[in-house]
Each structure stands twice: as C-alpha cells, then as structure tokens.
C-alpha cells in the first residue's frame, strides 16, 4: 500500500491493535506520515488524500530546519 500523503511505496508497521486484527498503525518510510488503517479514506487513501496536505520529496528536502542547527563551539580556550 502506498503512502496516502507522498505516494511512496514503502511502509513500516508501528503498532497493532491490542484487540488482534482490528487495526494497524502504518508509517511511510519517506515522509513519515503515520496513519491507522481504520481512519477515514481522506486520511488513508491516496486518491482521497487532500491536495493541500500532500507532500513530495522536494517538500521534504526544502522543509525549514526548526530550530536551525548552530555552529559547533570551537574546542579549547583562549591561551
């Protein structure tokens, strides 16, 4: 099953329902979108997933860093 959000084809199973066989929690291994298999189609099926929330590899690559990673402090003190 492909990712509803980014259409990537690799998912991992994060959790299974404590009552066996009711649902699974899946996660896309590219955009990390996470969903439960029993959620409405607008959250679980690619063709029903809203356009405004879709994500691409470019979106991931260009996502801002929050917070930005600071420069390393120089080791060693002043003489």
């Amino acid at each position: 099953m492909s990712c509803p959000r980014c259409d990537h084809d690799t998912t991992a199973t994060l959790a299974e329902s404590p009552v066996p066989g009711v649902w699974q929690v899946l996660q896309c291994q590219r955009c990390l979108y996470t969903w439960r298999t029993t959620e409405p189609a607008r959250r679980t099926q690619r063709d029903a997933y809203p356009a405004e929330f879709r994500m691409t590899q470019a979106d991931i690559d260009n996502a801002p860093e929050v917070p930005s990673i600071p420069p390393l402090r120089r080791s060693g003190g002043a003489g």
């Binding site: 959000r5 994060l14 959790a15 929690v25 955009c31 996470t34 969903w35 959250r43 929330f53």
Partner: peptide, 19 residues
C-alpha cells in the same frame, strides 16, 4: 520501550502528519 504500548495514541486533525 514502545510508546504505543503505554499510550493510546490517536490523530487529532485531518492534516496532522501523525499522532
């Protein structure tokens, strides 16, 4: 460690990326 074992996690809003 399995956060899903201890917390009954769920999604709040449609566009949320996860739980």
């Amino acid at each position: 460690v399995d956060v899903f074992e201890v917390l009954p996690l769920f999604r709040l809003n449609d566009g949320d990326g996860g739980f």
